[in-house]
Structure formats: structure tokens, C-alpha cells
Nucleic acid binder design. Structure first.
Length: 490
RNA sequence: GCCCCCAUCGUCUAGCGGCCUAGGACAUCGCCCUUUCAAGGCGGUGACGCGGGUCCGAAUCCCGCUGGGGGCGCCA
């Protein structure tokens, strides 16, 4: 079947997977799955200086975490491999040779210094910087002799000075003037291919039907098209997705804060939430719905609904969405997903996880409405864990009850007495006690709840008082109440 | 400097000539629920960058301007 859709994501392993890259990968993935085609992952590691295995691993890890499984590529193989550019050197060289022989390319002996000064000169004169074509007329035979004699040479592609057009899937027809483009290097003097060349060889040989990538590649496209033409490869359909911007409207970068998928994972963002959020950056479904499972995204996705304009990455909305995803889970699931964060915060020990699990589930039942990321969990549940919580006396609401000792004492004494006398400590009895306190003491509900809240949590706001009684249990409630009395009411 | 792309509430966006006194979501504000907080429910504030056309009619089409972004490497 040569009508099968084939798309790829081709990161260069020079750092972590960026959210912008993740979105490009996601769009390719969704498009492939929606069309019943293949999603291919290729590692563009021809930059020897900056590529690292560590980055490759980090990128693969992030892709998997996001659920973007690839059909061909590293670890899974495929018929069009290898999928690492550094393993495809022979292929690039073969095609470079063909281009040299067919007269589409030539050897260039210009040194870096010559090129630099040439460019500076052009810039000074306000001329668009473009290679002069100095080595264009050195014959292949002469060039080969010089190389045999030990000279270093790059290979340049002869740009045809013509108009280059292509039909972009998201932007429509785009036109470029080839006369403005200089002869580009396709093979560096160290023998490594350049991006614009390697990408064509790979996409051509890997039979890509569509190339969906970032906006920043628009001006590379005409350069690549002429290589497709020279090689006689079938051109894929191009689609350029707009970029992701920071809050200030410039290209999203480190100075805007977290940019890598890994950082969001660490911050306690769920992969489903990040996928959902990223899908909505630049793509919109029909209708007003915003929450989609991956399967639903696949079903709904269409390149025709991809926006042309760039999008600002709004962490607030991501976080809101993430909170919704967390709350969609049942209490047990939330307990499990927050566990690593609780352990890291020292609230739970690895060894007591099993024993504490049922209790943790109970904690999460009341706490999960209060956090938007998993990393928020520890600070929101810490007061359930130990008795040495701080009483915020500088909070005016709290101070009311530390200052009005008479009321607080009255309430606490009554409740302590009644709770101690309780045969069965359960929620119903606790409720009854509190009711009784109101009646007997002749105070409002608020005036019995607040002293209890302040003494049980040290705060004027937080989880429900009943929930505290339930989660803490009789003994810990007593400890807290008595401690509070001793410290603040005597 | 040159080339290219983009332009609807603060943000993500719907809108593809009349359904628009511009719809939804985040954020924000108010109300409700409620022992507090959160969650939830309801409601409010809030946008077609500007100027020319075309058309009976323009957020929607065309041109210019302005603004923003990207590219112009022996980086990808």
C-alpha cells in the first residue's frame, strides 16, 4: 500500500524534549493514527558537538510518558532504518556523489574565515548574505585531485535561481524566490551531512507522505524542495504548525520557566493532561468540548482545524486542566499517584506504604479537591501527618480563638469530655457531640466549629472539621486538643 | 538589511460574507452551596490592531500600514 500515510517526528538529541517539540510530535502522532498511517521516530544526531545519548534517552522517555508510541524508529526498528542519522552516513555520501556527478552539487574549498569575512562584507553593504558561488566552476576532476592531495572540501548544492512554490497544509500556497538563496552546504568538510540535506534523503527514503513540523522550518522548505527535485524523490505534503510562545510573546524558552516535558512531569502534571492541553494549542475540535482522551483526540484530529497563528503557553490553564484530570481519578488512584511526592517530602516511609494505604485513600478523598498538580499534594496534606503543626496566630481568624480563651476553653473542654466518654468513636457520634455542644453551651455552630478547627489544624481554613475527626481518629484528636489547650489557653 | 509567516477578550480559541448586539474555556470579579477553605453551580467585566477598498451587506475577501514571530550557518 503506497497510499498509507507516513509521518515522522525527528528531534535532534541536544537536550530534553521541549513542549513545543512534544506538540509537534503529538500532532504527527494524532494525524498518523487518525489516518490509519504510521508514525516514525528518527533521531537527527548529525551535530557531533551537541548530540548526546543522554538526550536521546530523555527524549524517548518523554515520548513514552506522553503515550506517543512510534511504529518505526529507535528500539522498535522498521523497514526504512536505520533511524539514527549517524548510522546513515553511507547513504548520505552515496547520494552526495550522485548529486556531484549529475552536476547538481560541487566541492567548495572556501575556508571558514573567507566565508565569514565575505558575509560581513555583504552585511555591511546591506546585501542579503548569500554564498558567492566562488567554487561553483571548479571542475569535479580538479576538485577530486585537490582532495586527493589532502585538501578539505565541503559539498555545496547549486541553487536553481527560480521561483519555488509549495502548497502548505495549514497555510496554503507559499512562494519563494530561489535567487535569494545561496548555494547551501549539503556535506560539511568533516563529511557530515547538514540538516537540510539529510532531512530530504531521510524523508524521501523513509517514504514520508507528510511532513508536519514547526513554523520555523518554513524557510527551509524551498531549499529542501530543490533537493527533492534534483534527486527525483516524491515530495511529501508539507504542513507548518505555528510555534509556541512564552507569556511575553517571544518564542518559548528557558527564561519563561519550565519548557521540557520532563519538568512538567516532575511538577506533577499528568501525561493525559499535558497531551490534552498541547492538542488544544493550535488545534481546536468541532464544538465546545475541551476534555479528550487520547482515543478521542485521535478520532477528532484534523489538520484542517489547525490554526495558523502562534499560541502562548498558558501554564495556568494547563494546571487547571491537570487538577480536573487528578480529580477524575478515584481516591485510591490519587493516593497512588501522589505517593512518590509524599515519600519525597518525607511524609511517608517506603516501608509503611502498604499499611498506610487505606488511610491515605481517606486523606486523598478530602484533600484531592485542593491540589492542581501532584507536587501540590504534600503541602496540602501535611497537617494530617503529624501533631507538630504550626498555629498561625498572625491570622486574624485564628487569633480570635486564641484570644477568646473563654469560648475556646469552654468548647474544647466539653468536646474532650464527651469524646472521651464515647463508647464508639465514629462519625455519627462525633456529629452528635458537636450538636450537643451547641445546645448545652448555647453557642452557634460556627463558634463550636472554629475553635475545633483552629486547635486541630492551627489554621482558620482547610479540610472539614468532621473530616479531621474521621481521618485523625480519637487518640490523635485528643492529643491535638490537649496540646492546644496547654499551649494557648492557659 | 533582505525574505517569509501571523494578527478575534489578558491567555487558548470558535467564526470560513448575512445565523455576530462575536460563542466557549482559563484567568479575574460577584453570587449560591457551606462550620472554614477548596471543589462545584450560576452570573458579570472583557476582543474583531489601524486605514483604505470590494459588496446591498465584512471579524470573515483584496491592498496598504502597524505590531509580533521566524529565517537568512560547514546548527537542527
Amino acid at each position: 500500500m503506497n497510499s498509507e500515510v507516513r509521518v515522522r517526528f525527528a528531534p535532534s538529541p541536544t537536550g530534553y524534549l521541549h513542549v513545543g517539540g512534544a506538540r509537534t510530535a503529538l500532532f504527527n502522532y494524532l494525524f498518523a493514527r487518525n489516518m490509519g498511517g504510521k508514525f516514525i521516530l528518527r533521531i537527527e544526531d548529525t551535530d557531533q558537538q551537541r548530540s548526546t545519548d543522554e538526550s536521546t534517552n530523555a527524549i524517548l522517555r518523554s515520548m513514552k510518558w506522553l503515550g506517543l508510541e512510534w511504529d518505526e524508529g529507535p528500539e522498535v526498528g522498521g523497514n526504512c532504518g536505520p533511524y539514527y542519522q549517524t548510522q546513515r552516513m553511507d547513504i548520505y555520501n552515496d547520494y552526495a556523489k550522485k548529486l556531484l556527478e549529475s552536476g547538481h552539487a560541487y566541492y567548495c574549498f572556501c575556508s571558514q574565515e573567507e566565508l565569514d569575512s565575505e558575509r560581513q562584507e555583504m552585511e555591511k553593504n546591506g546585501v542579503p548574505p548569500k554564498y558567492s558561488g566562488k567554487c561553483r566552476n571548479i571542475s569535479l576532476a580538479d576538485a577530486q585531485k585537490r582532495i586527493a592531495a589532502g585538501e578539505k572540501a565541503a559539498i555545496r548544492f547549486k541553487m536553481p535561481g527560480k521561483e519555488i512554490k509549495f502548497n502548505d497544509l495549514v497555510r496554503g500556497e507559499l512562494t519563494f524566490d530561489g535567487n535569494l538563496l545561496g548555494d547551501m552546504v549539503i556535506v560539511r568538510s568533516d563529511g557530515f551531512p547538514t540538516y537540510n540535506y539529510a532531512v530530504v534523503i531521510d524523508d524521501g527514503l523513509m517514504k514520508m507522505t507528510h511532513v508536519l513540523r514547526g513554523d520555523d522550518h518554513i524557510s527551509n522548505t524551498p531549499k529542501q524542495i530543490v533537493i527533492y527535485e534534483a534527486l527525483g524523490f516524491t515530495q511529501p505534503v508539507f504542513g507548518h504548525i505555528s510555534m509556541i510562545l512564552g507569556p511575553d510573546g517571544s518564542r518559548l524558552s528557558k527564561r519563561h520557566g519550565a519548557t521540557s516535558v520532563e519538568e512538567y512531569k516532575k511538577a506533577g502534571i499528568l501525561p493525559e493532561a499535558l497531551d490534552n492541553f498541547l492538542a488544544l494549542l493550535g488545534w481546536s475540535p468541532e464544538g465546545d468540548r475541551e476534555f479528550f482522551t487520547k482515543e478521542e483526540l485521535i478520532k477528532e484530529f484534523s489538520m484542517s482545524r489547525v490554526a495558523k497563528s502562534p499560541a502562548v503557553f498558558d501554564v495556568k490553564k494547563l494546571t487547571w486542566m491537570n487538577g480536573n484530570y487528578i480529580r477524575k481519578n478515584d481516591d485510591e488512584a490519587v493516593a497512588k499517584m501522589t505517593l512518590p511526592y509524599l515519600i519525597e517530602a518525607g511524609l511517608v516511609k517506603e516501608s509503611e506504604v502498604e499499611e498506610k494505604m487505606p488511610w491515605l485513600v481517606k486523606v486523598m478523598k478530602t484533600a484531592k479537591t485542593s491540589f492542581e498538580t501532584l507536587a501540590d499534594a504534600p503541602k496540602n496534606v501535611t497537617l494530617f501527618f503529624n501533631e507538630d503543626y504550626e498555629v498561625k496566630k498572625d491570622d486574624a481568624e485564628v487569633a480570635k480563638y486564641t484570644e477568646n480563651k473563654e469560648l475556646t476553653n469552654k468548647v474544647l473542654d466539653f468536646v474532650v469530655g464527651e469524646i472521651t466518654a464515647l463508647e464508639n468513636y465514629d462519625l455519627a457520634s462525633v456529629k452528635a457531640v458537636i450538636k450537643k455542644a451547641q445546645k448545652t453551651l448555647g453557642v452557634t455552630g460556627h463558634d463550636v466549629f472554629m475553635p475545633l478547627r483552629v486547635s486541630l489544624t492551627g489554621l482558620s481554613s482547610g479540610p472539614g472539621v468532621y473530616e479531621m475527626f474521621d481521618i485523625l481518629g480519637r487518640e490523635r484528636v485528643m492529643v491535638r486538643l490537649k496540646n492546644f489547650k496547654e499551649k494557648y489557653l492557659s
